[in-house]
Design a protein around this nucleic acid. Structure first.
Lengths: 208, 208
DNA sequence: CTCCACTTTGACCAAATGGTCAAGGCTACG
DNA sequence: CGTAGCCTTGACCATTTGGTCAAAGTGGAG
């Protein structure tokens, strides 16, 4: 079994192939529902070959989560304390919505994991994710207290952004069955809706 | 194997016992992740006994989903076309939030099912759920066009309500790791936040 | 009390599944 | 072109899991 970092060209390629197939399978069936045989089939490699590159099923899952966490947090990282508060937060909302559209598998992978109690990424949530959220919450609270946006709880604001944007990826099956539009045009409608909603929420109360 | 409706007292009791245990296990691990042995253990019955009352694992799961769907839709049913638009919708939001707090297992059961493509409740979503949403969306659109609430897409409004409220049940593991508050006091904060957010969203634009 | 239908379960089964291993194939480098 | 080390896999294994079955237990109507 090769070390953590792929060395040879072929190792790099197969690592990639496996993670790509695993993303597909894990995001569709959750950790327990996915099988090594499915991942082997989908990746075009044999099952023992998977286990040559990764020591176990759970290690594939963990590698995936770890690799994707950074990308997942990226939109929030980009929230600029120096920018215009309302526009910064709205840009964040729309970036998250774009990610839900472009990377629904990643979103569902995390959703599956967290719904089931986050057994494999508890540490990353408590570490990386929490400290980033804490940091950006302070920024938002600063804006809030300066009267540049409404007085709202930054944590719940962030939760509501996650919930409303990821909903379109995680609950896609439901959304598509309720809205009949064939294409993914509901993402455009969602964009309009969320843009309006969060703009409205952030606008400071003028009278009080 | 007894018919659909439990007849004897003992059948009624055991049906109940099994579904209660199954709710616990399915909501924690998803369909594939749950095992009959776990459900048997948790219900205090033997595995063959489970299969005396239900013909298969999937039939337990389906019975659960079916039984809970009605309760799940109830808050939306209560949305009164004759009431005050803003207050009706806000009351709906808060009812949904209460359900997320009081019935997190039910919420996660549905979340698990839908994230994985809703293989066992596709028909109920396309039927009962869709027609209810269609009906209430018409009501909301009516209010919207009459200028009694803002001009917003009723479907996406409903999605955003589901997303933001159920988030506190489905993603509880994440929420609790990010907010340190020990108790479930974050539900109170969420109530304040969501109340403000949706009130804001529904307020009609006065100028245009 | 008796008897019959309802209920319960220990033992068992076939299939699926995560994982192992030894043997064979391939490749890059000298 | 040869060989050392990387890569691949068919066959196999132990365990888990959904499900079966025959036999034993139990409760309540008469």
């Amino acid at each position: 079994m090769p070390g953590k970092i792929p060395r040879t060209r072929i190792q790099k390629k197969n690592h990639e192939t496996i993670l790509e197939a695993a993303l597909d399978v894990f995001s569709r069936h959750g950790f327990r529902g996915a099988t090594l045989d499915q991942i082997a089939l989908e990746s075009g490699l044999s099952k023992p070959n998977l286990l040559y590159y990764f020591p176990s099923k759970v290690s594939i899952h963990r590698a995936l989560l770890e690799r994707l966490m950074a990308n997942w947090l990226d939109p929030l990282h980009k929230l600029d304390p120096q920018g215009n508060p309302v526009e910064e937060i709205l840009a964040y909302v729309l970036r998250k919505l774009d990610m839900a559209r472009e990377f629904p598998r990643e979103s569902r992978l995390f959703a599956n994991e967290i719904v089931q109690g986050a057994p494999n990424i508890a540490d990353q949530i408590e570490g990386e994710l929490k400290s980033l959220v804490d940091e950006k919450s302070k920024v938002i609270r600063g804006w809030s207290e300066a009267g540049r946006i409404a007085k709202i709880d930054p944590y719940h604001l962030i939760f509501s952004i996650w919930a409303t944007t990821q909903h379109y990826a995680d609950f896609d099956a439901q959304v598509c069955k309720i809205i009949e539009t064939d294409g993914a045009s509901h993402f455009d409608d969602a964009r309009v809706f969320l843009n309006r909603m969060f703009r409205q929420v952030l606008t400071p109360d003028t009278l009080v």
